[in-house]
Amino acid sequence: MRLAPGTVPNELIDVLMDGETHRLETLCNTMIYSKEQIIRAAVKLADHGLMDRHSEPGEYRLSERGLIQVRSGFRIKSGPTRAHGKIRRQHDTFRVRAWKAMRVLGIFTLGEVIAAAERGEADPGYNLRHYMRVLIKAGYVIDLPSKVVGTKPTSPGFKRFRLIKNTGALAPVYRPRQKVLFDFNTGTEIAIGEAVPCL
């Protein structure tokens, strides 16, 4: 019969929760599981940092940190032991496409980038203005002094931008919680503060 994830490790925790050292032979006699199952469960506890690996062979005891954790209710569940710590790469988002278009165009207006990158998004202009502000703050893009003349009577014109830091094919991403721009190409983070749309 297939056991639910964490069944044997959690039962092992219940036995070891007294804080004493238990020998493998004793555990085999007191628990209903095989020797291999108990060893695998012990490895699982060690992976979670509940048990020290440097105890004597065949002797199992929870570490001090493990004892605190299990007494406060910690139990083994299915899934990874901890967050993988890597930053998720974005694939085929509007910003990724916009970055690709910027690299080809070199000097561009927001409109030119939108025309190349949009795919029926609700408001690509708003999204791109945010992203452009972040790139300008991080020193990836500069706005040029000359503007494209606007067409409406009161239009101040359209800003022209230039990509000056073309670090590679992967689009840098803004991480709003940390308020940084992370560049996958260089592996660097640039602190930039709150992102507001550029005008």
Binding site: R97, A98, A101, V104, L105, A116, A117, R119
Partner: peptide
């Protein structure tokens, strides 16, 4: 260039 920019981005 406009076409290449769009095609490669898309």
């Amino acid at each position: 260039t406009s076409l290449m920019a769009r095609w490669q981005a898309q």
